[in-house]
Design a protein around this nucleic acid. Sequence first.
DNA 1: GCGTGGCGTGAAATCGATTTCACCGGCGCT
DNA 2: AGCGCCGGTGAAATCGATTTCACGCCACGC
Lengths: 328, 328
Amino acid sequence: MATIYDVASRAGVSPATVSRVFNGTSVSQEKADAVRRAASELAFTPNRAARNLRLQSSEVIALVIPDIENPYFTEMARGVEDVASEAGYSVVLCNSDSQVDKEAAYLRIAMAEHMSGVIIATADGTSDLDGIVATGRPVVAVDRATAYDIDGVVMANREAGSSAAKVLLDAGHRRIAYIGGPEHIDTAVERAAGWRAVLTAAHPDLDLDELERFSTFRVDGGRDAMQELLALPEPPDAVVAGNNLIGVGAIQVLSEQGLTPPRIGVAVIGSLPFTTLSPTAVTVVRLPARQMGVSAARMLFERIGGDRRPPRTVVLSGEVLPARVAHR
Amino acid sequence: MATIYDVASRAGVSPATVSRVFNGTSVSQEKADAVRRAASELAFTPNRAARNLRLQSSEVIALVIPDIENPYFTEMARGVEDVASEAGYSVVLCNSDSQVDKEAAYLRIAMAEHMSGVIIATADGTSDLDGIVATGRPVVAVDRATAYDIDGVVMANREAGSSAAKVLLDAGHRRIAYIGGPEHIDTAVERAAGWRAVLTAAHPDLDLDELERFSTFRVDGGRDAMQELLALPEPPDAVVAGNNLIGVGAIQVLSEQGLTPPRIGVAVIGSLPFTTLSPTAVTVVRLPARQMGVSAARMLFERIGGDRRPPRTVVLSGEVLPARVAHR
DNA sequence: GCGTGGCGTGAAATCGATTTCACCGGCGCT
DNA sequence: AGCGCCGGTGAAATCGATTTCACGCCACGC
């Protein structure tokens, strides 16, 4: 690995001049040419560790997500990655596995590595961002709100919950259950609130507590909750799944019981990119995950670029794709 | 951010001693205690950029994959991540998007950042690992073979192709088509070879060229190829999907045409973690992606730890999960 | 003709951790 | 008593890029 000194001596200039050539300050044309020639002959790549040390920052951002195996987050990661790589940054993908301590460990690393910024979907409401925020490095929250005064990009969760419920109501369903994520995650709570508001208005007589399940945002969670709901004395005639994986689990259970979706109403909040169902059998409130990643990354780079405006929160709306097959 | 000098002066010792406390060389008990106390009071975290510069290596590995949105690769990433984080390393996930030039850019970064090693599922057979391999840093190839003499972890692809074909044959199918990935990717070619060998032996009269499609390893690829196959004068009565996403695409098309899987034989090489089909309707050759990531990471860390044995290639076998519903 | 300004350049300081080198004191051995 | 060795310690060099500072030089204006 050639260093800046090797390039300098080959080009007959000082290391300072070499640095200036690559960092765009004034250098005479002839020396600049000589430096560039020497650099390419030696296949010179600046040593990033040295650069990072001197600049106290690195062209790396951290993306912390709670579940690397959830397509929703990988779609988001894809959006972040696209923006970052265009800006010449690389992305360290950190899987917190919904554990606050793993998350904290990654945030410490981000600080120690002088990463330029962090995009984080917090593990839960108790996530500790004190350290990172105190360093002044930009942090953008995605998907989930935080207790900090920082930029954010979230989905219109309450709206998604109510849209999903409304589509099912309009299709003639009445006992519409809801399976959501953990109660300590705001997205789960808000989506449930949307569902609840719509149902309370339409059918004040329903016992919604019985029809509401807080579960995990995973396939198993959806399965378990769906099984419980089906075992009720009076089972639901439709169900809203609080995220994509819960939807998968719920539909799996329904299929196994011979209740393939057009036979029971199903609305899922989030896309089902790898479903093998006919895409028309289930109502989907598509959440623009990739767009969320793109927006978050753009905001982050604005901050890295020196933007000092007050923090903003961008809210992205889902798109309702109603089942085309009539329910029931 | 406190530095080693701050800690040193607070503890009344030299920076060298502080470093020794954290790097395990001999320091008297009392000074070590003083250093530790000072470090914790100042919330000292060693500056990684400085450390990396001095040590010419960083506790970071790169994981380069061709498609971050494919659950197969994220499952693998999960395995890598688990091993890495246990070893105190972080993982930079690099999405090459199957493009050799993006891949090359990431490899350059890996070198410039002095990353400790690279695990790579190459974009295609022409991937250029010269640079990285020349640095002597460990590189482990996953999923796909390379032209280099390096460690590798691959699936038993040919075997997976023939197992899939065999299950369908045994279920009574005859015109068994194959939809694979691009011809320039070895996994696609080998899986196809397995299928072809089994079918040639069983039904030498079949025109296999007509029943074989090289496509992309994506949902769209599976859809397009399946549509072509169904449009044949004499359509297949079963199909082997060369990877998970092709399987999803093929099954989607079949469902749309009213040919839901038990009605036509389907075998998929790779798991369908988010399928909503009853898991018994389709034959799956489960590929242990997580295990592949774990093995690759372990091999990488052995190399990082100084292992100088000749390169090895680990082959992992798929697990056949036959459809439990009789085909046809 | 002389000061002023600005441009191009190199020497040297800097970032923060690790590690070599040299030194000190104490202990054991002859 | 004298020698050698060893454990503990600090001063200083080192990693490689950036950046400040200072200097030389030329052009311009008064």
